[in-house]
Write a protein that binds this DNA or RNA. Sequence first.
DNA 1: GTCTATAATTTGATAGAC
DNA 2: GTCTATCAAATTATAGAC
Lengths: 180, 180
Amino acid sequence: MSKLEEIIETAESMIRERGYNGFSFREIADAVGVKSASVHYHFPTKGDLGAVVARAYTEKFLLALGDPEAVTHAPKKLIERYIEACRYAIAKQDKMCLCGMLGAEIAALPDDVARETRIFFEKNIEWLAKVYMRMTNVGAAGAQRRAYGAVATVEGAMILARTLKDPDAFDKAVKQIATS
Amino acid sequence: MSKLEEIIETAESMIRERGYNGFSFREIADAVGVKSASVHYHFPTKGDLGAVVARAYTEKFLLALGDPEAVTHAPKKLIERYIEACRYAIAKQDKMCLCGMLGAEIAALPDDVARETRIFFEKNIEWLAKVYMRMTNVGAAGAQRRAYGAVATVEGAMILARTLKDPDAFDKAVKQIATS
DNA sequence: GTCTATAATTTGATAGAC
DNA sequence: GTCTATCAAATTATAGAC
């Protein structure tokens, strides 16, 4: 893996652990085994790094979700897949969703990082709404409300699980969206 | 209002806006009209300030919720009251729940601040579980799951609304817990 | 692409006068 | 209880050598 890739991966990990204002270029550099000036070579400003990390995370996340309208997968299975992606982040990594963390800090972020964070949630809601459209008879507005509810519950459930130091809290919190 | 009270109030506002790592003693001092050394007189360390702010917020929040078992209030009304408290924070103040913000940053917090944050959620869940016990026939475990779900959804809904710059996103996200 | 060196600013925190 | 003055450390960022 190139130093560039290592920097992006390390930055993602640190933001998910302690937030955008909770890491520094020096920490990234130390973890990767370079000097902070080398990190600045790849990313002139902290905002540049944050924006690239957020965009890469969004792409990776959506790719893992797959096509919300794939006829080969039952909608209920897709919702479970969505939840499972976040359960893994909490139970195995004990880390927040990158954009859940950035979303909480949204008012403290450079514009380009905030923009990428917003795109993540827009695409998540779009994906979930398409799935809910296939499994409910509540219409487009109802499917969208469910999508908003699912994203919110999952992000909040991650906060709960980490704060209470209890991965089971995540499962309890998402139980409703998993079974409805 | 005393300078001490102003410091606590300003700190709460700044944490809810930009997070624990998003404010400094100097900013607090400037906003209140004193010097940073005076803030340190009241709160030797940043953690001391954060812990007091979190504890005061929890007390204030629970006081506003009232008795979850008061026979004079229908359980459904109490859930609405819970949601309304957070809707106000988002729609009128455009700020996160203090402990939702701190919960996201939990791994970056001093121990005493993290402890107060945890207590907030424990008490929220306890309050909600008592209310759900009155309105459902799902038993204690079911009521607790609903409590976890409600807290998570509300906190996540605040992140969504701020990130999307759309207060209506909050209402869409909490629709399910408001009507179930 | 990575390094050394450094600038300019901010941060959390303390000492001591009033 | 608030002030001035100050500290040591950390932060984002840049210049220029290799």
